[in-house]
């Protein structure tokens, strides 16, 4: 069994912490993992993505072949669409709905959301939820929660546990806030 995931967003949005948690869960569960990141110039407000491959069999390439991505997890709606060329026919997009506009030619929002809705997708304004939970920094954990039931190679419970492990050194309050955000994401995903 395998799951090929593209994590994406805009440089600085925190996609790598999502990758770290999935990585922790995979290592704990003994699932093979390869995760290719982009560092350097593009982290300065440009588009960023990370290829994350999970499998019970050995993984060869660090990058996912075109048309084989199972899940796109995106911190930003237009960025989610950037990678649909890599998506498999049954693939799902899990995305934040709030645009990050730092370019003058950002597309029409209604048309963008319309195009996104035609895909197999789960969408949510994760920043609004995180603000509602009084924990704006944990928006990415809402997104991970939304994606959790789709990762399948790892259970929701395994991922939840990894959230506590990764945030443990930041204290109990931070762990609680992130678990709450994660749980809200899981809930939204099931609707």
């Amino acid at each position: 069994m395998k799951k090929d995931i593209i994590l994406c967003g805009v440089g600085g949005q925190g996609i790598l912490s999502i990758a770290t948690i999935i990585g922790e869960a995979a290592t704990e569960a003994g699932i093979n993992l390869k995760q290719a990141e982009v560092h350097g110039m593009s982290q300065r407000g440009g588009d960023v993505q990370s290829n994350l491959r999970l499998s019970t069999d050995p993984i060869w390439s660090d990058q996912i072949p075109t048309g084989e991505t199972d899940v796109i997890i995106s911190m930003e709606p237009m960025e989610a669409l950037r990678y649909i060329g890599y998506l498999s026919p049954e693939g799902t997009i899990i995305t934040n709905t709030k645009p990050f506009v730092n370019i003058p030619n950002y597309p029409d929002e209604a048309a963008l959301m319309n195009e996104l809705s035609e895909m197999n997708n789960v969408q949510l304004d994760i920043e609004a939820i995180a603000t509602e939970l009084k924990s704006p920094k944990s928006a990415n954990m809402v997104l991970l929660g939304m994606a959790a039931p789709y990762i399948e190679v790892l259970s929701v419970e395994q991922l939840r546990k990894a959230v506590s492990v990764i945030f443990a050194r930041k204290g109990e309050a931070v762990v609680e806030a992130n678990l709450k955000a994660f749980d809200r994401g899981v809930e939204a995903s099931k609707k």
Binding site: G45, G46, T66, M78, E79, I84, S88, I103, D108
Partner: peptide, 18 residues
Amino acid sequence: NKPVFDPAQNMAGRPPQL
């Protein structure tokens, strides 16, 4: 390896910036 979906219509480049 061929893409299954056509490239997105509502898309713009997002170059790095200061």
